[in-house]
Design a protein around this nucleic acid. Sequence first.
DNA 1: CGGCATCCGTGACGATACTG
DNA 2: CAGTATCGTCACGGATGCCG
Lengths: 210, 210
Amino acid sequence: MPRRSYDQYCPLSRALDVVGERWTILIIRELLAGPRRYTDLHADLPGVSTDVLATRLKEMEQDGLITRRRLAPPAAAAVYELTPRGQDLLPALTLLADWGAADLTERRPTDALRAHWFAIPLLRQLAELAAPCEGTVDVQLDGGTFHIVINGAGPSYAHGPAEDPDARLTLDADACLAVSQGRTALPEMIKKGRVGVDGDGPLAHALRGQ
Amino acid sequence: MPRRSYDQYCPLSRALDVVGERWTILIIRELLAGPRRYTDLHADLPGVSTDVLATRLKEMEQDGLITRRRLAPPAAAAVYELTPRGQDLLPALTLLADWGAADLTERRPTDALRAHWFAIPLLRQLAELAAPCEGTVDVQLDGGTFHIVINGAGPSYAHGPAEDPDARLTLDADACLAVSQGRTALPEMIKKGRVGVDGDGPLAHALRGQ
DNA sequence: CGGCATCCGTGACGATACTG
DNA sequence: CAGTATCGTCACGGATGCCG
């Protein structure tokens, strides 16, 4: 059964035929943090209905954005993960998130929040600050934690804390927003005490602007 | 009446709340070529229904992406044009189009085609080749024509031919695709005779790779 | 004729309940 | 846990009508 298409011979239309449906890009945002199970995806995508999520995952698998993989027998669970083609969306989504960050003002009472939703804007900021250092940075944000991995192959991020981070950042949503919007650089925020840093390796020093 | 939102405190979600509805990004693609009237928009967006187009234009005006402007009395028409906020989407849409270009294989019989739909991928290619030259390039593609303006303030494009172009490119959809996908550089395509160049100023020479 | 508004049929979406 | 089934609602696409 053919899915609906804009039927235009245009690079942008073709991209939207694949990732333009409701929820698709947000599912990719979740999977950019690494392989995840259906239930975890559903938990971090508040508002999506179970059937729409199941449908999207099938479509995205057909389109070569993700693969479904069974874990080893004891786990007996399936995880979804991005293919290289899916990961190639990171640059475009980064610029789209940059654009959206300018719209992001106050947190409305109805707004859900997960720490790793700010990983995309922070990724580039941290990578630029850290260069040429490499390593892992834990980010603790309003009760949630994720970590960012900086190496030559391009930065990435994942859920939860790292096993042995080179540095740890602690901040709240306001501080994170200021950095994401580029209003205030990270070392500045650290000096003001609005962002805490742990660690004393070269990466931690780089984040402090030293 | 509040529009539907993902209700997530996330830069990417906020961007999608504004440009994630069906047709919105394609309307922006059209307006990146300059101010346009309702009827012309409708003609270059085959498949959009009249009411959806009218609704989107109102929403986009409310969201500060576009403005509606009445032309001088003799014309008695209204045009829609992008605000600076709307124009800020060009970098993100360029990367999204780059990603989509990889998916763009054969032209299906049902696919519509307009020359300026390839302006976005060509824009950066031409700007990089031309630097540090400035000027205007006409592009004739499969019966349609648009022109690209290269100057320090960032490249832009518009419908139809320029009044006095510094160079003129002539190519078909296949050749355009090869360049858009980065498979073959423009000077290479010119040497192979798959892209024609008129003009002998510095800009035309730069496009030839000289 | 340009610029929509209205009506209507279809399909996508969201919430809940249910099942292997 | 990982979805499928059901159902009401809304968004979309196509056609037509209205009004300056």
